[in-house]
Design a protein around this nucleic acid. Structure first.
Lengths: 189, 189
DNA sequence: AAAATCATTTGCCATTTGGCAAAAAGCGAT
DNA sequence: ATCGCTTTTTGCCAAATGGCAAATGATTTT
């Protein structure tokens, strides 16, 4: 919980009572490697925060290929905004790639807090805005770079991920085949 | 102005007085083709809305190549959030690709309105969230598709853009060369 | 330790895309 | 219609990446 408190205090100030109220609504959740935190076709009812572990967000494209859209590692928020805000079916899976420790807020509690705690709405909006901007800034440049550069970018963005998950997920994130990635790594060393 | 009012009313309700106040702060702006709405290295001081025309957001990558990150066409908001919110230097150029008619709010007026109009902050956050989500959803899938598919995706996302701007900008957006794009188009027809 | 399972690397060849430069096509001004 | 400029297409060949399958390496289970 400490981690989450630190995280939100980066975006604004809250007094101890407010923090206590927020904490009181948080639930601890552990997920085993390979299990899903949320699934496509379901409606998102939770906001999560990764205390330990790595997850990925993925989906299946037109050709049925499984695509990893991004990774989520420690001290990051996990929420499918489109589904959570509009209560429509999610189009993505969120899967644990390692055993994970998370804290979770139910949608009801989350919305209650938004109405109850003065200033919390502004903080949440700052957080969401930053999370979304980060997604754009991280993924967008990959489109126009060659495979080697994309891999180097991945290493910069997720320095703590590469040795903890299978190569195939990285390849899927970068839009190249696993064998190409393997050769690229050989050339870099 | 009508267009902007319609746009914001999609995200929440405002009464005529509130709309009038918002309108009173808006300035009309026309930009000639090829001119810049905002530039890298400067601090964003304006929120814009495209009434007519097409702009692009672009930057220069490590290799000095000019990359088009996305296009902005009619009835869309133009704001460099990172720069506008944090008052830091922008890292991107926003350039008109056709003559453009826009409406513009100064940062000061924009922030005043946020404080003055009850409910406006929530609407703005919904708008920003949607704009950012749209950027992710549009650009992210390009990473993992081949050039032909990327071009077809571009056509779906920006159906009114392709015939109004030079091919080279589209190629830059898709991360392929202009000649490859030309060949791809030949194969599709 | 051996077997079974999973992850990574490699070989071979096909396909896609890039690089460069020239030709062709389109467009506006005169 | 013609000139000058910009945009798009094409040709040629090189480089990058994909597809598939087998080999190697690592990890877990028995």
């Amino acid at each position: 919980m400490k981690e989450f408190i630190e995280y939100i205090l980066q975006f604004g100030n809250l007094n101890p009572q407010q923090l206590a109220l927020i904490s009181s609504k948080a639930t601890e959740l552990t997920i085993k490697k390979d299990a899903y935190f949320s699934e496509a076709g379901k409606i998102s009812q939770e906001v999560g925060f990764v205390v330990e572990g790595i997850l990925r967000v993925c989906y299946y494209n037109n050709k049925g290929e499984e695509i990893t859209k991004y990774f989520i590692d420690e001290n990051n928020l996990v929420v499918d905004l489109e589904s959570f805000d509009n209560q429509i079916c999610s189009s993505a899976y969120v899967q644990a790639l390692t055993d994970c420790k998370m804290i979770v807020f139910s949608r009801k509690d989350w919305l209650d807090l938004l109405h109850t705690i003065v200033g919390w709405e502004t903080i949440v909006h700052k957080i969401i805005s930053k999370v979304l901007r980060q997604k754009v800034e991280r993924r967008s440049p990959l489109v126009t770079e060659d495979a080697t550069t994309r891999y180097l970018m991945f290493l910069e963005i997720y320095p703590n991920v590469v040795n903890r998950i299978p190569l195939s997920y990285v390849a899927s994130y970068l839009g190249i085949t696993q064998s190409s990635l393997s050769r690229i790594r050989k050339n870099i060393r």
